[in-house]
Write a protein that binds this DNA or RNA. Structure first.
Length: 803
RNA sequence: GCCCGAAUGGCGGAAUAGGUAGACGCAAAGGACUUAAAAUCCUUCGGAGGUAACUCCGUGCCGGUUCGAGUCCGGCUUCGGGCACCA
């Protein structure tokens, strides 16, 4: 009898052995196929590791460990996305330097991750807050600036009128400040922007080059939101000037019965003398400033707006003078900030017209525009539309666009929902933006030789009363010389958003200590692109898109050789609390991974998180379920007590080959739960026979090793192996041996199961039919009925349709 | 509101290409072992009816396609993720 399974005796032991052996350190080796596996590096929060973290990490650890056994040269790195708001807020509250907080949090995270036995190459660890790292983040910014992709623009921020600070969206709860409950307004500030929109088309098109799960591609395409339409000029009555609109439905122009401008539209200010109800406009503008875009575009809410008195435009198609309104459902950030309203064929316009009694003119037949807007573009013919009458919508689109550009009234235009990236934060704990402002030269970038521009020490990390970054109060840091003319100049005091550091981190892992370049050409050539990147769906539209944008930019300037950073992208579901709600302190349903490791061991935690359910779906935590996985590992441990020598036994030969096949495929398809179920079933077979051969046991151990690396290494050693599992080979299966001689299939009558019958794959239908019609239950079911049809699907089903 | 997902026993979930719904695990019940408990092992385990053989119902709801639908189509409901300064 061997001693009982105690992970405390074995897990640390194997982690130390792997460390000492350098088992998982990756080096360039051109004789081997490379595999670069990437998981999203964590934000090292003060709460420590969450049970959600191990889910994706274990998943790619499994794939990495398996690929190594299959002979690939695997790079599986880990690091820290350590700049950010929570650390800064914690630092403010506790009067500790954010750097100290970060160091402490990283140490804790690292210890926790190490205890889980991941095969990370810790030699390649990085932190975005390390000056040797953010030097290159700043360097990329300089390149963007150099190419005209970084620029300054007036953009609104959330401003708490009481705290006098700029707030993150998250800190605005129901329109009020999360800290003090006061009103939050939008305040316009000059901010650094990155021109991601210049890459919109390629970010869509190049999705065809990569293997991302479909929902990620769809979400990115929708986020970029390409729409093809036209920009059209509507002359302002009595002037030479035009109000320009963007529309995806130029075909409906004859139905444009009024126009709507965003309350922020600059043309309003220009014509304020003409607008008789200017006071009303100002009041409306103030109210709109309090709402987010999200609130403003909500369709369910009551539409609001102000009709301009004394300001009208002319519909260029009909020649009619039409009223102009302002309303907050038109956003200044999309299109031209103004629309032509076609209430008959747009839902929002329809509701607005209903509320304010504006005329609704049908120009596409097919619906009943008195009841609802008719928005179908597939079916319908143009009516009430002059020279467009009788055309289909798509034809009308083409014709009116040509007409408008001939008459110089507008032209075809592609618009994207994607907006440029607001790159400034008025915060301390971020990368300083390496730019100075010189009165003579304007914004001047630092020279590359001056990087990294270090984040200076400050007394206080509190944002300032005027909404500027805390850096603005450090005068001897702010005061600098213009790199161009040498005159006195001021440094930019905004810092970069957390997204900056995470937009290129995969490039630093491959050569993390290089002092001269973010990564050497050799390492880029060998390791890039990332072969498999797994992360949360919540990062699909921001992080994933931002990093693709930066990588494409680096590609354009010849710094990297692949147009896309990630060859493959998969996604995991969240781990919820036992009550099926998101884990949070306030809900009291948080599970600490340390407790699970302490009580059951890391292998149990890993096995459980992989067994919990379909990888891509959310799953609720269950402490009872954890116990079940520990029980499975206990059963595997006790297999050593029923060990017999020899190869695969005759009884289990098929089961062994089938299991190898299933586990091998399931791991690659991230169906970890069914892979584990198959290994449980195999273990149950050993128990049923009350013995396991050495070869069978070793195969099980290697198959299970990626999921539960410690227990399997220990048992493998106990079997007398001098080599470790990590040095062994992935088992192979023989396809011919995975097929059983007979299969049990169902016999159904009109789709209802009546009996089952064993068939062999090569048996012909007539023989099977003869046997089936001898079964009493089948005879009874078809008795006195007419047999209409019989369907036999080989090794699947035999169905008899009767009447 | 817009975009993307999801819904299957008491519970977590399984079901390559539309082919025996409920694999595997948890919980529960009964039994074996034990002085006892824990652990372990064995059995039962979707619902209703029936002594039984067996019958009927059953994959969120309504309808459709099909010899056959958890799976496909149309229309809903509810829940989760994202909505650009949380990351």
């Amino acid at each position: 009898m061997n001693e009982t399974y105690n992970p405390k005796n074995t897990e640390k032991k194997w982690q130390d052995i792997w460390d000492a052996d350098g088992a998982f350190s990756a080096e360039i080796d051109k004789s081997k196929e490379k595999f670069y596996a990437l998981v999203e590096f964590p934000y090292p929060s003060g709460q420590g590791l969450h049970v959600g973290h191990p889910r994706p990490y274990t998943a790619l650890d499994i794939i990495s460990r398996k690929r190594r056994l299959q002979g690939q040269n695997v790079l599986f790195p880990m690091g820290w996305d350590a700049f950010g708001l929570p650390t800064e807020n914690y630092a403010i509250q506790n009067k500790i330097h954010p750097k100290a907080v970060t160091e402490k949090n990283i140490a804790r995270f690292k210890e926790q991750l190490k205890a889980l036995g991941y095969s990370f190459d810790w030699n390649r660890e990085i932190s975005t807050t390390d000056p040797e790292y953010y030097k290159w983040t700043q360097w990329i910014f300089l390149k963007l600036f150099e190419k005209g992709l970084a620029y300054k623009a007036e953009m609104p921020i959330n401003w708490c009128i009481s705290c006098k600070v700029g707030l993150a969206n998250e800190e605005v709860v129901n329109g009020v400040c999360e800290r003090c409950g006061s009103e939050v307004v939008r305040k316009v500030k000059s901010q650094w922007m990155l021109k991601i929109t210049a890459y919109a088309e390629r970010l869509i098109n190049d999705l065809d080059l990569v293997d991302y799960i479909e929902k990620v591609k769809v979400q990115q395409r929708n986020w970029i939101g390409k729409s093809v339409g036209a920009e059209i000029n509507f002359n302002v009555t009595g002037t030479d000037e035009a109000l320009r609109v963007f529309t995806t439905r130029p075909d409906t122009i004859f139905g444009a019965t009024y126009m709507v401008m965003s309350p922020e539209h600059t043309m309003l200010d220009k014509y304020k003398e003409r607008i008789k109800n200017w006071d009303e406009v100002l009041r409306y503008r103030e109210d709109a400033a309090k709402k987010s875009d999200f609130e403003r575009t909500e369709i369910a809410k009551d539409k609001t707006g102000v009709g301009l008195d004394g300001f009208t435009c002319v519909n260029p198609a009909t020649g009619a003078e039409i009223p102009v309104w302002i309303s907050d459902y038109v956003l200044i950030s999309y299109g031209t900030g103004a629309i032509m309203a076609v209430p008959a064929h747009d839902e929002r316009d329809w509701e607005f017209a209903q509320k304010f009694n504006l005329p609704i003119v049908e120009v596409v037949s097919g619906g009943n525009v008195a009841d609802a807007a008719y928005t179908d573009t597939e079916k319908g013919t143009m009516v009430n539309s002059g020279f467009l009458n009788g055309l289909e919508v798509s034809e009308a689109k083409k014709k009116i666009t040509e007409y408008l550009s001939d008459k110089r009234l507008g032209e075809g235009k592609v618009n994207y929902k994607l907006r440029d990236w607001v790159f400034s934060r008025q915060r301390y704990w971020g990368e300083p933006i390496p730019v100075v402002y010189c009165e003579h030269c304007g914004y001047v970038p630092l020279s590359e030789a001056d990087l990294p521009l270090l984040l200076p020490e400050v007394e206080s990390y509190e944002t300032t009363d005027d909404g500027e970054s805390p850096l603005s109060k450090i005068t001897d840091w702010v005061n600098a010389k213009c790199p161009k003319c040498g005159a006195a100049a001021k440094r930019e005091t905004d810092t970069m958003p957390q997204w900056a550091g995470s937009s290129w981190y995969f490039l630093r892992y491959i050569d993390n200590k290089n002092p001269d370049k973010f990564a050497s050409q050799e390492s880029l050539d060998y390791w890039m692109p990332v072969d498999w990147y797994n992360g949360g769906m919540e990062h699909t539209t921001l992080h994933l898109l931002y990093s693709r944008f930066w990588h494409k930019f680096l590609y354009d300037i010849g710094q990297v050789t692949s147009p896309e950073p990630y060859a493959k992208r998969t996604s995991h579901g969240m781990i919820l609390g036992e009550n099926n709600e998101k884990m949070s302190k306030s809900r009291g349903n948080v599970v600490n991974p340390d407790d699970i490791v302490g009580e059951f061991g890391a292998d149990t935690l890993r096995t459980y998180e992989m067994f919990i359910g379909a990888f891509e779906l959310a799953a609720a935590w269950s402490n009872e379920g954890v116990k079940g996985c520990r029980r499975f590992l206990d059963r595997v441990w006790r297999l050593q007590d029923m060990l017999k020598g020899g190869g695969y036994s005759d009884e289990l030969k098929t089961a062994m080959h089938k299991t190898i096949k299933k586990v091998t495929a399931d791991y690659e398809n991230m169906k970890f739960n069914t892979a584990i179920a198959a290994m449980m079933a195999l273990t149950n077979e050993f128990y049923r026979l009350e013995r396991v051969t050495k070869a069978e046991f070793e195969t099980l151990l290697i198959l299970l090793n990626p999921v539960a690396p410690h227990i399997t290494e220990e048992l493998y050693e106990k079997l007398g192996n001098k080599k470790r599992i990590y040095q062994s080979k992935w088992p192979v299966y023989d396809e011919n041996l995975t097929v059983s001689e007979t299969v049990t299939i169902g016999v159904t009558v009109n789709g209802k199961v009546k009996a089952s019958v064993d068939v062999s794959p090569d048996e012909n239908q007539d023989d099977i039919k003869a046997r089936i019609f001898a079964i009493p239950a089948v005879i009874k079911a078809v008795e006195g009925k007419e047999i209409v049809k019989e369907i036999y699907v080989s090794c699947r089903i035999y169905n008899i349709a009767v009447r």
